[in-house]
């Protein structure tokens, strides 16, 4: 089953098109990796898919329903189904880690008892290994810790779709592997769909079911992860070989 369908989509800012003529779909309960060189438009595509940046042309359908970017109600429905991990975490600096993770609960389920909220937040913080830092403010954390906290926030309301912009950038290999396991567990155990922007070949190989490669303002390649890793397309080989060289 396809949860997202993209047709003839152009994305960009104002007059400048960053990516054009995109057609692809995202399968439900799968992890799709979006890869491409820096500046190829990965974050821009993500921004459009999460309803923040109206497309310049084309359409996106979420579970068959066209996303209307000028309808607050339609965007509200989209926001209720998704969680987003931003490239630079975007935790609220004025709130502690606990409050950041609890925020979606407090705003959308204010009637939920505090004890229940506490249990949910602590479970989530445990999962990302941040239980001991719940009273810290974001500026007191390292970049990787902020990432994990932001992931906890994105998951707290158990959305069916989670978008991650470089979840493992800046993480050590062990933490990064732990994060990948978490994603896999959510996918397999809870049927969550992930769309993950990433540069890490190891992570792609570990978690991705599908891969979308962006290059020169369009989709260069789309396919199953295994096929892409075995592909003898020169660009893909170069991309992955460089990456692996870089990793060692």
């Amino acid at each position: 089953m396809e949860i997202i369908n993209v047709r003839d989509l152009d994305v960009g800012y104002g007059g400048t098109v960053v990516l054009r003529g995109m057609n692809f779909s995202i399968a439900q309960g799968r992890i799709t990796a979006i890869i491409g060189a820096s500046g190829s438009g990965k974050s821009t595509l993500l921004k459009t898919m999460i309803g923040l940046l109206p497309p310049l042309a084309g359409e996106i359908r979420l579970a068959g329903e066209r996303i209307e970017f000028d309808s607050e109600r339609c965007l509200g429905r989209l926001f209720r189904r998704i969680g987003v991990l931003y490239q630079n975490s975007a935790l609220l600096g004025a709130l502690t880690l606990y409050e950041n993770v609890a925020l979606p609960i407090r705003m959308h389920h204010p009637e939920r008892p505090r004890s229940e909220e506490r249990a949910a937040v602590r479970t989530m913080l445990d999962r990302v290994g941040l239980r001991d830092c719940e009273d810290k403010y974001p500026f007191e954390l390292s970049g990787g810790m902020r990432k994990r906290a932001a992931l906890a926030r994105a998951m707290i309301l158990k959305p069916e779709l989670i978008f991650c912009d470089e979840p493992s950038a800046g993480l050590d290999p062990i933490t990064s592997a732990g994060l990948d396991e978490l994603l896999l567990e959510l996918r397999t155990g809870h049927g969550v769909t992930f769309i993950v922007v990433t540069h890490e070949l190891r992570s792609i190989a570990r978690i991705a079911d599908r891969v979308l490669v962006l290059r020169d303002g369009r989709i260069y390649h789309e396919g199953d992860c295994a096929d892409i890793l075995r592909s003898d397309d020169p660009y893909l080989r170069e991309f992955f070989l460089r990456k692996t060289d870089h990793d060692h």
């Binding site: 309803g51 630079n88 975007a90 935790l91 609220l92 926030r153």
Partner: peptide
Amino acid sequence: AMKVTEELDALKTMGI
């Protein structure tokens, strides 16, 4: 500053 750090975007996609 919240706009620069994408905190405003994060609020929006949390439905806030």
